[in-house]
Amino acid sequence: MALLEVKNLGISFGGLRAVDNVNLNIDKGQLYGLIGPNGAGKTTIFNLLTGVYRPTDGTIKIDGVNIVGKSPSEICQAGIARTFQNIRLFKKMSVLDNVKTALHNQMKYPLVTSFIRLPGYFKAEKEMNEKAMEILKVFDLDGQADYLASNLPYGKQRKLEIARGLATNPKLLLLDEPAAGMNPNETAELMETIRLVRDHYQITILLIEHDMKLVTGICEKLLVLNFGTELAAGTPEEVLNNPEVITAYLGE
Rank of each mutant, 00 (worst) to 15 (best):
N66A: 04
N66M: 09
N66L: 14
I67D: 15
I67K: 06
V68G: 04
K70I: 08
S71H: 05
P72G: 00
S73R: 15
S73G: 06
S73D: 14
S73T: 13
E74Q: 13
E74V: 00
E74M: 04
E74Y: 09
E74C: 05
I75V: 06
Q77H: 11
Q77C: 09
Q77N: 08
A78D: 15
A78M: 15
G79C: 04
G79T: 02
I80R: 08
I80M: 05
A81D: 14
A81N: 09
R82N: 11
F84K: 10
F84Q: 07
F84L: 11
Q85E: 12
Q85I: 07
N86K: 03
I87Y: 06
I87S: 03
R88S: 13
L89P: 04
L89F: 11
F90A: 01
K91V: 05
K91A: 06
K91E: 05
K92P: 00
K92I: 02
K92N: 15
M93S: 12
M93P: 00
M93H: 10
S94T: 15
V95H: 05
D97Y: 01
D97A: 09
V99L: 05
V99Q: 02
K100W: 05
K100M: 12
K100T: 01
T101M: 15
T101R: 06
L103A: 08
L103D: 00
L103H: 06
H104F: 15
N105R: 10
N105I: 12
N105P: 03
Q106N: 12
Q106A: 12
M107V: 12
K108L: 09
Y109R: 09
Y109N: 09
Y109G: 06
P110T: 02
P110D: 13
P110Q: 10
V112A: 11
T113I: 00
T113L: 10
F115N: 07
F115Y: 05
R117H: 15
L118V: 02
P119R: 09
G120T: 03
Y121S: 10
Y121G: 03
Y121I: 02
F122M: 04
F122P: 10
